[in-house]
């Protein structure tokens, strides 16, 4: 089982003019086998939510709680959160020059499992994951994210999702910058993850495009650091037709 519970989360960042509150009380529960889409206009705090869950040092939690299966996530370091079963697919995956993808994947898998993966099955697993995401096997020898196209970066994130097998995946605008073929490949990867027992997905997106391939159980509209509305998949269709205007106006 896996339940990510976010309660009244307040988060601020340091700016030149002092701390600025970005998240203003977010409450959200992602239960077993649930996929939640968070949609909202730029600057609404969607990415801040993703990075705060992952523990990025730039963001300061000033109130509220985040728990994973009852464990206090906010008390954990960044790597402890990952080992507890959280995964963040980033909008802008970071280049790590000189560190090969295969070394990176093996190191991460070893850290998550607490022991090195069995060599023979691991090589097969890696090659399988790369192949399913339409990445050439030679991909393993390249430096992490260095010189990757936008699509390769996102597919590499989903390959990690597949190999590291977390409990809950937070996908931060994984669809942005993808052409239709890459979007399908990435969506299939996410769907393979969802089909497994007891996985949770928090899908953050600006556009409804990806929701044609990944059907969420719940849709939350995020405006000005808060959930402004929520509903089922039909809410996404409504957003596609009407946009965020009425929510943005209501928030002002």
């Amino acid at each position: 089982m896996s339940t990510l519970e976010i309660k009244d989360l307040h988060v601020s960042v340091d700016t030149e003019d002092g701390p600025k509150e970005i998240l203003k009380g977010v409450t959200l529960t992602i239960g077993d086998n649930e996929t939640h889409a968070i949609m909202g206009p730029n600057g609404s705090g969607k990415s801040t939510l993703a990075y705060s869950i992952a523990g990025h040092p730039k963001y300061t939690v000033t109130g509220g709680t985040v728990t994973l299966d009852g464990e206090d996530v906010l008390a954990m370091s960044v790597d402890e959160r990952a080992r507890a079963g959280l995964f963040l697919a980033m909008q802008y995956p970071v280049e790590v020059p000189g560190v090969s993808v295969s070394n990176f994947l093996r190191t991460a898998k070893t850290a998550i499992d607490g022991e090195a993966p069995k060599l023979r099955t691991w090589v097969k697993d890696v090659n399988g994951a790369l192949e399913r995401l339409n990445l050439d096997p030679s991909f393993g020898t390249r430096s992490v994210n260095e010189g990757f196209s936008g699509g390769e970066k996102k597919r590499h994130e989903i390959a990690q999702l597949e190999l590291l097998a977390p409990k809950v995946a937070v996908l931060d605008e994984t669809d942005s910058g993808l052409d239709i073929d890459a979007l399908k490949i990435v969506s299939e990867g996410v769907n393979r993850f969802r089909e497994q027992e007891g996985k949770g997905v928090l899908l953050i997106t600006h556009y409804t495009r990806i929701l044609r391939y990944i059907t969420p159980d719940y849709v939350h509209v995020f405006v000005d650091g808060k959930v402004a509305d929520q509903g089922g998949p039909e809410l996404a269709d409504q957003l596609e037709a009407e946009g965020y205007d009425k929510y943005v106006k209501a928030a002002v």
Binding site: A54, P57, V78, D79, A82, V94, F104, A108, Q160
Partner: peptide, 9 residues
């Protein structure tokens, strides 16, 4: 951050 978010200490 990127590496640590993958569980690496």
């Amino acid at each position: 951050f990127y590496l640590r978010s993958r569980g690496v200490s």
